[in-house]
Every structure is written in structure tokens, then in C-alpha cells.
Design a protein around this nucleic acid. Structure first.
Lengths: 153, 153
DNA sequence: TATATCTCTATTGACATAATGTAGATTAGT
DNA sequence: ACTAATCTACATTATGTCAATAGAGATATA
């Protein structure tokens, strides 16, 4: 049920690009440093996001990456789906990446009906939250003091 | 964001065991046949579930598996957690399988705050749904005609 | 005792993930 | 034009997990 590191890095990169949406571009090196992401790996990920139309790049000395669209228009669902496929916990409840199940009667499968609920719950959040929303949250969290209950988990 | 085949098989096996809770045991072969699960692989999975205290086994000629506890007391969350660990999409929001994140400030991470919501949503469903609930749904679905909208996805 | 079953450990192959290596293309500023 | 900083592209490797298979062994019933 986990997001891959690839997906996690992508979201962190998008957050940085969102927070710097006023600037022309942000360098890979900068994102890599800020977020502790291996630079070469990040290159690949940003390239993926580029072919997905989520970010755009500028080459050369003053080059770097920027969001290809306004932060309000980029949902987490879009990014994750392009990077790792389905948000659904099993293929047989995915709308965009449907895969047939090996179970005897998919249409009347009780597990499938539960997994549909899980899918809905996840998609609801991931499609609602945009990079802009992420940036807002980030700014708020920076201002507020650290929640002491968050330390020991 | 996917459940492994292992986890999926486990749930399907638990459903079969739940539907046959009145019988002393169900053979691996029977489950394997009904659900199209490779038998040897299923053995391992049931063994895992046994060490998790979810199922019990009886050896010998009239042997097989049964639920170790009433179906009402076995949640999907329990089974999945024993088989594949965290339900959370990232380690840093998992309560039982917490892992430190590489991000600069975990306590004020905006992505983490979203992932917490996702985790909550998933856990809420998986902890509420028991094997008994699964069986009820299965029986209802067997009675009802197949929903035509379910065919093409 | 025979046989059908579960038990356990080990191993394999396939695949994805995560990362690294190397060379090349582009662009701003000089 | 030159140079340096950057992105681009493709190849390669390392690692790990997943899914499955193999084979010997233990157990209980008839």
C-alpha cells in the first residue's frame, strides 16, 4: 500500500517548484540540496514529470525546472498516476489502469467492493489536493510552532 | 499504492474460511481451486496468517485451515498489516511501522500532512471491515443480479 | 502402517526500484 | 567564438521484493 520513493521525491520536488512559482526556474541542484534527494535520480523523475506535462525545463547556464501549469491545476493524483500508475489498491478497481483479477467472479467479489471504497477514499484526497494547496499548507506549517505530539510516533 | 498479490490472496483465503466457519477445517487445495491461487504459494500465506494468530491449522488426513477467531474479530487491517506491513502510503505517517523520512523537516512537512489524511482514510475502512462483514457482502452479492455497470471498466 | 495433509527451509526467476556513469546538447554571459 | 553551468539521453548496475517452486519432514486419521 506504499508510495514508491520515486513518487515521494516527485511530490517533494513539486512542492519546491510550487513555492518558487514566481521565479523563472529552479535548478535541480537546489531541489536536490533542499530536499535531500539524489541529484541524478531527481533528474529522471523531473524528466518523467516533464513528459507528463507537469513541469517544463529550460536548459543552459540559467536553466532549471518550473511548473508547466499553475499550481492550482496540478493535483497530486495527476503526478502520482504518471509516475507509478494506479492509485487503487488492486488492479480490478482501478479506472485508468484496470487489470483483470484472477478471482472466480469479479463482478460479485466482496473484497473488490471493499477495495473500491478504499480507492474512492484515496482518490478523493489525491484529486482534491493540488500543488497550490500543498504550498499553502507548507507556509502555514512554517509559521506555526511544531506540534509536540508529532515528535514521538 | 498497491496491495501485493500476497495480500490479495490472503484476503481471498480469509473470505473462504469465513464462509466455511461452520466446518471444522477447509483444505488448502479447496481454497486454491476455488480462488485460483497457486497452492504452494497459498501454503506460505496461510502459514503467515497462522503465526499472526489469524488462522489455525489441523494436520493430517482430515487436516486443513480454519479461522483462529470469530470472523467478527478479524479485521482486514490486521491481516494486511501482518502480511505486508504498513497501510500508510509513506513510512513517516505510519503508526506501527514508522520510518524516518529524508525530508528536511518532517514535523512541518506539507506532504506528510496530506499523507496522514490518506492513511486515516485507508485505516478507517480496513479497521472497520471484518471477515464477517466480508462474508455478509459476499452472500448479498451472490443473491443480487450482476450490476451491468460493473462489466466494462 | 499407509496416505493425505500440513510444516518448514531454501532457492529460483522475474521484475521493479534506486541509483550511478558517461557522453552529449543547449544556453547565458563574456 | 568560448566557456561554464545546466539539462538530456541512454546505458548500466546494485539491490531488493515478489511470486512461485522444490523437496524433505512432521502429523494425524483410517
Amino acid at each position: 500500500m506504499k508510495l514508491s520513493l520515486r513518487g515521494e521525491y516527485a511530490l517533494r520536488a513539486l512542492l519546491v517548484l510550487g513555492l518558487n512559482y514566481d521565479r523563472p526556474v529552479v535548478r535541480i541542484q537546489t531541489i536536490s540540496d533542499q530536499q535531500n534527494i539524489p541529484k541524478r535520480f531527481l533528474e529522471q523523475i523531473l524528466n518523467d514529470l516533464k513528459s507528463a506535462g507537469v513541469v517544463a525545463s529550460k536548459r543552459g547556464v540559467a536553466g532549471g525546472y518550473r511548473l508547466a501549469r499553475p499550481p492550482e491545476e496540478i493535483t497530486l493524483a495527476t503526478a502520482v498516476r504518471h509516475l507509478e500508475g494506479a492509485l487503487a489498491p488492486v488492479g480490478c478497481v482501478s479506472e485508468r489502469f484496470y487489470e483483470k483479477c484472477s478471482c472466480p467472479d469479479e463482478a460479485r467479489c466482496a473484497i473488490r467492493s471493499v477495495m473500491k471504497e478504499v480507492r474512492e477514499a484515496v482518490v478523493k484526497i489525491m484529486e482534491r489536493v493540488t500543488v497550490a494547496e500543498l504550498c499553502e499548507r507548507s507556509r502555514k506549517l512554517q509559521q506555526e510552532p511544531v506540534n509536540p505530539f508529532d515528535f514521538s510516533i
